[in-house]
């Protein structure tokens, strides 16, 4: 099954595991399975309207899904999905 790498602050919702394996063939399916298995992640990753939060970037292996097929990006059983925040700012 594909492996999902969990950012440090979210491990409190995954029984302290830094990676978990969940079933799914696309990013959407993987994140759906992930938040079903670990419901505490849902509020961190999705808005109340069910959209991925603006600060959440998702990578399949080392590729940003925004430049692939977004949440329909295919994920193979040997792939690694990584959640990375988007951060910027200024005075």
């Amino acid at each position: 099954m594909p492996k999902v790498m969990i950012p440090t602050p979210l491990r409190q919702f995954t029984d302290k595991q830094d990676s978990v394996e969940v079933a799914g063939a696309t990013v959407s399916e993987i994140l759906g399975a992930l938040t079903t298995a670990y419901p505490g992640l849902k509020q961190n990753l999705y808005t109340d309207e069910g959209k991925l939060r603006s600060f959440v970037n998702v990578y399949v292996n080392d590729e940003d899904i925004r430049y692939m097929n977004k949440d329909k990006t295919p994920v193979a059983a040997t792939d690694t999905v990584t959640i990375v925040p988007s951060i910027a700012g200024g005075r």
């Binding site: 602050p9 979210l10 600060f55 988007s86 951060i87 910027a88 700012g89 200024g90 005075r91």
Partner: peptide
Amino acid sequence: SHPDHDAYFSVTDLKNSCPWY
């Protein structure tokens, strides 16, 4: 850093922040 400005959390900082850190 905020060059030549105080250390506050601006609206721009807030709108582009992430609550995990």
